[in-house]
Amino acid sequence: MIPETLELCLDGTWLAVCPVTALTPGRGVAALLPDGSQAAVFVDRAGRPYAIGNQDPFTGAQVLSRGLLGSASGRAFVASPLLKQRFDLESGRCLDDDGVAVPAYRVRTATAPAPAAV
């Protein structure tokens, strides 16, 4: 069986990130994007994938992938491991500060891998 690949959409191009099995439900991993920026990629308990920017806008550190994933009212969020602000995983909006958001990426799982991202 070909393992499913998690893909992320950057400027209209789908990039393969990693096999879905590389992710633990409820936790994230960081991915290096071709432009040198970083994405934080997660799957939730139900197996749904998400990707947002990895840089924590409150500290500048590239750490959102290492936060804890949670859900509230059916929407998944990640809490930054540094100062604990929460970010909606679909929109990238900060739930604790209306004026702040991180990029949010479209993601999908595919069985035929797209060309590798890096």
């Binding site: 920017g53 806008p57 929109s91 004026g99 702040v100 958001a101 990029p103």
Partner: peptide, 15 residues
Amino acid sequence: ISPAAPAGRPLEGSA
């Protein structure tokens, strides 16, 4: 990161 992004303006690259 620019210190304390002014409230009301989403950060660079924001969705």
